[in-house]
Amino acid sequence: MATVSMTVNGKAVTADIDPRTLLVQFIRENQLLTGTHVGCDTSQCGACVVHIDGKAVKACTTLALQCQGANVVTIEGIAAADGTLHPMQEAFREHHGLQCGFCTPGMIMSAIDIVNRKGNDLDEHTIREELEGNICRCTGYHNIVRAVDAGAKAMAGPAKPMKHAAE
């Protein structure tokens, strides 16, 4: 057993864990934050994406011990304390960017990271390329791309009234 301490969604946590524990297991089983999902065993699918010290990381490919002292943010940590949704979350709902919802937390966390790195005015090609590490089996991606585009713009400044999804 080993002891690990980190901050998860703004809360300091400490736990004794099997050293083999992956970060995604720590988050889901130890912290009972089940919004981060496991969809594959090869780091391809992106359902497990979280932010570690401000960067998108696949939690299935990181040991919890590697996050000693880190600041981890999951899907549960991006809405405001009063429940106001993050603009990217709002955009996914507005633009029907999800069906079964299983890939959605990872998509949203990846999308926010794309904006952090590439800015608020993303072109379609960039969004599609940047989402290569996130797989969806339901939507065919079109509405996810629309959602990311809209979310990126909304993250730029004060909330603008959003249009309903066209289709």
Partner: peptide, 9 residues
């Protein structure tokens, strides 16, 4: 959608 986009599915 609310529960899916907030990770509370």
């Amino acid at each position: 959608d609310h529960r899916f986009i907030t990770g509370s599915g």
